[in-house]
Simulated assay, not measured.
Amino acid sequence: MVSKLRLHTALFLVALIYAGTYSLAKDIMPHYMQPLGIVTLRIGGAALFFALIKRVVAPQDKIVGRADNLRAIACGLLGIALNQLSFFAGLNLTTPINASLLQTISPIVVVLASAVLLSEKITPTRLLGILLGAAGAAALILSRPASGKVPADALLGNAYLLVNAAVFGLYLVLVAPLMRTYHAFTVLARIFLVGAVVVVPLGLRQALAADYAHFPLYIWGEIGYMVFFLTILAYLLNNWALKFASPALLGVYIYLQPVLAVLIAVATGKDIFTLDKAWQAALIFVGVWLVGRKPKPAALPPTAVPTAD
């Protein structure tokens, strides 16, 4: 049995890595590099890394069958390409706090996708959670940012992030059967390859246009953070932790990530936490909490007790 300390350490590091991304990426975009350029470096680097690791740890494992190959392509398109393109495009236009709060609605999308794709029932409690989460997300998307950014830009950025959360939730449902059937690195190598095939042609021009010779040292460090810590290390830690963590424990860290993101954004001067964002966050958090609650098992009919005649 894995120790609780190791499990909590892994989950906390994942939450911290994701939380730091919202503020660190704002240092890079758009002054030093455009969003497509960052996505190209991130996905290209991760695709190469996972392809090499897969050859070492699972050289004979292959995704077989038309259905699984199509599923892997869909995961690469949604979970890697569209997910990352929409995330960095949205973060470039909106604020770190908005981005981190909108990310938390992914569990709601997972429930909706499971209802459509896996025919799972949506209970009244979960329906209420979906409505509350949607209301909080809508209010956040339509709100005027405290930073004074042009409302149209902020609205578009929030919309990109809503797409990001939606496609990531759908990806989690689609990728689960592949992860149960094949080695994790086999799946990762394939879906990142698909993502790279889509993203690299789109973002190569922006990646090459960056003036690397004049990048300060801290910008190089933040780009390395995006490629290694965010894409590779965070996934490896998260994938390991998912094998041992209970749904309740994972739920705690879902809420911890935006809290850390808010603290980092405010501490670094990248954003301002307002009362409006507080009640919008509360709606989203309550909605996600209700959606994450397990339905109570149906009561068994009373069993007749045999009696002696």
Results as ranks from 00 to 15, higher is better:
M1E: 13
M1F: 11
V2P: 05
L5Y: 13
L7N: 02
T9E: 01
A19G: 13
A25T: 13
A25G: 07
K26T: 05
D27I: 12
Y32S: 05
M33W: 02
M33Q: 01
Q34K: 15
P35T: 04
G37F: 00
R42Y: 12
G44K: 04
A46R: 10
L48Q: 08
L52F: 12
I63C: 00
G79I: 01
I80M: 00
N83C: 11
Q84I: 03
S86G: 01
L93C: 09
T95Q: 07
L101Q: 05
K121R: 15
I122F: 00
R126D: 00
L127I: 05
I130Y: 00
A135H: 11
S143E: 12
A154S: 14
L155T: 05
L155M: 10
Y160I: 02
F168H: 07
Y171V: 00
L172F: 03
V175E: 01
V175G: 06
Y182K: 00
Y182R: 03
Y182C: 02
H183M: 03
T186P: 02
V187A: 08
L188T: 02
L188H: 08
A189S: 15
F192L: 11
G195D: 05
A196C: 10
V198Q: 05
V199D: 06
Y212L: 08
L217C: 12
Y218F: 15
I232T: 06
L233G: 07
L236G: 07
L237M: 10
N239I: 09
N239T: 09
W240P: 13
P247S: 04
L249C: 04
L250N: 10
G251E: 03
Q257P: 09
P258E: 13
V262N: 10
V262M: 14
V266D: 08
V266H: 12
K270D: 14
I272N: 14
F273P: 07
A282I: 11
L283V: 04
I284M: 10
V286R: 05
V286D: 07
V288K: 04
G292R: 04
R293G: 00
P295W: 02
L300A: 15
P301C: 06
T303G: 12
V305S: 08
V305Q: 14
